[in-house]
Computed example of a mutant assay.
Amino acid sequence: MQNNQIIEYEEKLRKAMLASDVKILDELIHNKLIFVNHFGQMLNNIDGALKVILGHCSTVKLD
């Protein structure tokens, strides 16, 4: 995957999170991805995405 493609998908992900667009988030986030929140709870794709959207978790930028 090219850097410009990664940047494009990251921007699409950011916009979907800001807009609470669960449909787009579900398309972008792999089903096997597991979120770990600040309590150490492991959340699957849709559970994690919804909690992030609702502000129960915060996102960070990783370089």
Rank of each mutant, 00 (worst) to 15 (best):
E8D: 02
K61V: 11
G55Q: 05
L54A: 04
A49K: 05
N37K: 13
K32G: 08
K51F: 05
H56Q: 14
D63L: 11
E27V: 01
I29L: 02
Q5D: 12
K15L: 07
D47M: 10
K61N: 10
M42K: 15
N31D: 11
I29R: 00
E11C: 08
H56S: 09
N37P: 11
D21H: 00
L13K: 03
I34K: 03
L54C: 05
M42Y: 10
Y9G: 03
K12Y: 03
M42D: 09
L28S: 02
M1P: 06
V60G: 14
V36F: 04
I34S: 00
L13Y: 02
Y9A: 05
S58G: 03
G40N: 07
Q2D: 13
N4H: 15
E8P: 01
I34F: 01
L13H: 04
L43C: 05
L18P: 00
L62D: 03
V52A: 15
H56C: 11
H38N: 13
L33C: 09
K51I: 02
L13Q: 02
V36L: 05
V22R: 02
I46G: 04
I7S: 11
I46L: 15
F39W: 12
N3A: 14
G55M: 12
D47K: 13
G40C: 05
N3V: 12
N45D: 10
E8T: 01
G55W: 04
A16K: 01
Q5L: 11
L13N: 01
A19W: 00
L62A: 06
I53P: 07
I24G: 00
I46S: 13
E10R: 12
D26E: 09
I53W: 11
I6W: 04
N37H: 06
G48A: 03
T59V: 14
E11R: 12
I7M: 03
K32E: 15
L54T: 07
V52N: 10
I53N: 14
